[in-house]
C-alpha cells in the first residue's frame, strides 16, 4: 500500500516539475519576445521624436513626401511634376506584366491574390520558415521561380514596374511591419547596424546624411530625412531617367560615399530595408513617386 502511495507521489512530483519547467520556459520566451518588441517600439518612437524636434513645424505624417516635406520651393515644383507623373507609364506596364500568364497557366495573382486590396504595407516581412527578410521585389522573383519562370533583373525594368503597380494599388494603406520572433529581431538589428555604420572612402553612414544632417545642402542637393523613405518606393528619379527600387537607391548612396555597392536584394540591403521600413511604421504608402 505504502509502495503504491510512494510511486504515486513520485509520478505527481515528476509531472508537476515538468509542467513548472514548461511554464518557466514559455514565460522566458514571452519575456524575451516582449523585451525585443519593446526595444523596437522605443526605437520607432525615438526615431520619430528626432525628426519632430529637428523639423518642429512639420507634421510627422508629411515625411512620406521625403525632401518635399521639408522644402516648400521644391515641393511646389514637385507637385507640378506629379500632375503628369513620370512613373505613370511604369505603373501601366507593371499592371500589364502582372497580368502575364506563366507557361504553366498560373500568374502573379496566384502568388499575390490580395494585390488589389493593397499588400505593400506588409512588406518587407520576416519569413519564419526561411528566416529571412522578404521584400516585394524578392517575392516577385520567388513567385516566378515557383512557377518555373526566369527571374527578372533586380533594380529597374519590368521588376520595378511590377513593384510600382503593387505600390500604386496599395496607396493609402498604412505600413504594418511585423516582428515575429527573435531571429526577425536579429535581422532588424543587422539593418540598424548598417544604417549607423560609416562606409566608403568618405566615411559616411546612412544616418549621417539622412538623419544627423538631413535638411542640409550637400553640393546642390537637399538631404532628405530617412523617415518615410520606404513609403514612396519604387521611385522615378530624374537623374536616372527611369524608375528604380529602394535597393537601387541604396546602391547609389553607397557609390556617392565611394563604397562598393552591395548585391541588390542581398541580405544586407534587405535587412536595412526591414529596419528602415520599421522606423516608418504606421505611415501611409504613397509609392511610386518621383524625385529629383
Amino acid at each position: 500500500m505504502n509502495l503504491i502511495k510512494t510511486n504515486k507521489f513520485h509520478w505527481l512530483a515528476g509531472i508537476a516539475t515538468l509542467l513548472l519547467s514548461v511554464s518557466v520556459h514559455s514565460q522566458n520566451n514571452e519575456n524575451k519576445q516582449s523585451s525585443f518588441q519593446e526595444n523596437v517600439k522605443e526605437d520607432i518612437q525615438e526615431f520619430r521624436d528626432f525628426y519632430s524636434k529637428k523639423f518642429s513645424n512639420i507634421d510627422i505624417n508629411e515625411f512620406k513626401d521625403g525632401v518635399y516635406a521639408i522644402d516648400a520651393k521644391s515641393r511646389e515644383q514637385w507637385l507640378e511634376i506629379e500632375e503628369f507623373a513620370p512613373y505613370e507609364i511604369s505603373v501601366e506596364e507593371g499592371e500589364e506584366a502582372f497580368g502575364e500568364t506563366f507557361a504553366n497557366g498560373k500568374s502573379y495573382i496566384d502568388c499575390f491574390p490580395k494585390v488589389e486590396d493593397g499588400i505593400r504595407q506588409n512588406y518587407p516581412y520576416f519569413n519564419t520558415e526561411t528566416n529571412q527578410v522578404i521584400t516585394v521585389e524578392l517575392a516577385i522573383n520567388q513567385c516566378r521561380k515557383t512557377n518555373n519562370e526566369k527571374p527578372l533583373a533586380f533594380g529597374n525594368g519590368t521588376l520595378a514596374d511590377i513593384s510600382a503597380y503593387i505600390s500604386f494599388a496599395s496607396r493609402g494603406q498604412l505600413l504594418d511591419i511585423k516582428l515575429p520572433n527573435e531571429k526577425a529581431y536579429d535581422a532588424y538589428m543587422a539593418g540598424k547596424k548598417f544604417f549607423y555604420s560609416k562606409r566608403g572612402q568618405l566615411n559616411f553612414a546612412c544616418a549621417d546624411c539622412h538623419l544627423q544632417i538631413a535638411g542640409s545642402m550637400l553640393r546642390a542637393d537637399l538631404l532628405s530625412p530617412a523617415l518615410g523613405h520606404p513609403t514612396a518606393m519604387p521611385v522615378y528619379r530624374s537623374n536616372w531617367g527611369e524608375l528604380g527600387t529602394l535597393h537601387t537607391r541604396y546602391a547609389e548612396c553607397n557609390k556617392n560615399v565611394r563604397a562598393q555597392p552591395l548585391e541588390l536584394q542581398g541580405e544586407d540591403y534587405r535587412n536595412l530595408e526591414y529596419f528602415q521600413t520599421m522606423m516608418s511604421q504606421g505611415m501611409e504608402v504613397n509609392g511610386p513617386s518621383s524625385r529629383k
Binding site: G200, N254, R258, Q260, D268
Partner: peptide, 9 residues
C-alpha cells in the same frame, strides 16, 4: 566584410 571602397579595384 562588405566594406570595400569603390576606388580600390
Amino acid at each position: 566584410v562588405g566594406f570595400e571602397w569603390s576606388t580600390t579595384q
